[in-house]
Design a protein around this nucleic acid. Structure first.
Lengths: 174, 174
DNA sequence: ACGGGTTAATTACAAATGCAACCAAAATCA
DNA sequence: TGATTTTGGTTGCATTTGTAATTAACCCGT
């Protein structure tokens, strides 16, 4: 079997195969996994992924501000805000004022929320284990490792990018 | 340094760390990458990712039906339909009737579209190379490999899943 | 202590998405 | 052949998402 180019200089005019284009594969794999997850969590707990992430964070820290959640969970402020709103509506979390800072809020889980959190975490671990089952232990470890590296790298590229900032913001679909 | 569990049986009550939860990492990495891509393509060609994928497919096959594009590019029918509409509006592609099948359409690029396609592919390769630059050749290869395996596996899990099918379809956010 | 600039969070509005309903043209079959 | 079902594709509607604007409170220099 031939070495089959990987990081060599971009191949010239061979036809472009979308299915072998890493960003595409990454996106597709991630979407599939997310879907599966979303479905299970939706069925089991009626939670969206955003809500689930917030629950995970609040459950972990006990008390945390929306901003901190957004930062730690790589979520948009707005998304957090909305997720929190619906968690509150569902009686799973509550928002109190932050005595230290008048504009900030402090989130915490209600009794009900804490209870649910206890069920939520094991399900996550189970699901992760199910995914892991498709790869060897080494591959799984490699995947985690590479994914992190890639992420860090993209982050750098992204940061280096000259943000449009000012000009009429082009909406970024997908 | 301790072996630090990876695929061992789900850890018991250690706090749940979202940042180390693979599906999360996968999703975050994919989103970052997509964003970067979307921005670049949007700036350079005014294309969304969906449009770009369609262009890639049509450009590659010369002539192809929307359905085939959807299948090969892992896209939703509707998404393809809309992407095609906007490509047509932009004068990049055209839709003709399929002589073989009255309900199907045949897509192909216009002169303008073909021309743009020639610029689009190199940009994709460049971007991919930029991503690859963050990892060693081995890691990159491993990532591709594991990603594919994971994808195939998720697909299986997903297929095995008892589709809600009937009951009031729960909307799957994200 | 007060005005300018920030930061936390929510709200408002616009664009994008997904699902279901829909139309039209096959294919299946009695 | 004619009715029934299936398939290709588009359209409508409700939900979601993202960006920008808004409100409120903080920080800082004077």
């Amino acid at each position: 079997m031939q070495p089959k180019s990987s990081t060599d200089t971009p191949p010239a005019d061979e036809p472009f195969l979308l299915e072998e284009f890493l960003p595409y594969e990454l996106s597709v794999a991630a979407n599939r996994a997310s879907r599966l997850f979303a479905r299970r969590y939706s069925e089991a707990f009626g939670l969206s992924i955003a809500e689930w992430r917030v629950m995970a964070m609040v459950g972990r820290f006990g008390t945390i501000s929306p901003g901190a959640v957004a930062e730690r969970a790589e979520m948009d402020k707005v998304k957090v805000s909305r997720a929190v709103a619906s968690l509150v509506a569902a009686g799973l979390a509550e928002q109190g004022p932050d005595p230290q800072d008048g504009r900030a809020r402090l989130l915490r889980l209600t009794r009900k929320g804490r209870h649910m959190h206890q069920d939520i975490v094991p399900l996550a671990r189970t699901l992760e284990a199910q995914l892991a089952a498709g790869l060897s232990a080494d591959e799984w470890a490699a995947l985690r490792n590479c994914l992190r590296k890639l992420y860090a790298h993209v982050r750098r590229l992204d940061a280096a990018e000259p943000r449009p900032k000012d000009g009429k913001a082009t909406r970024l679909p997908e």
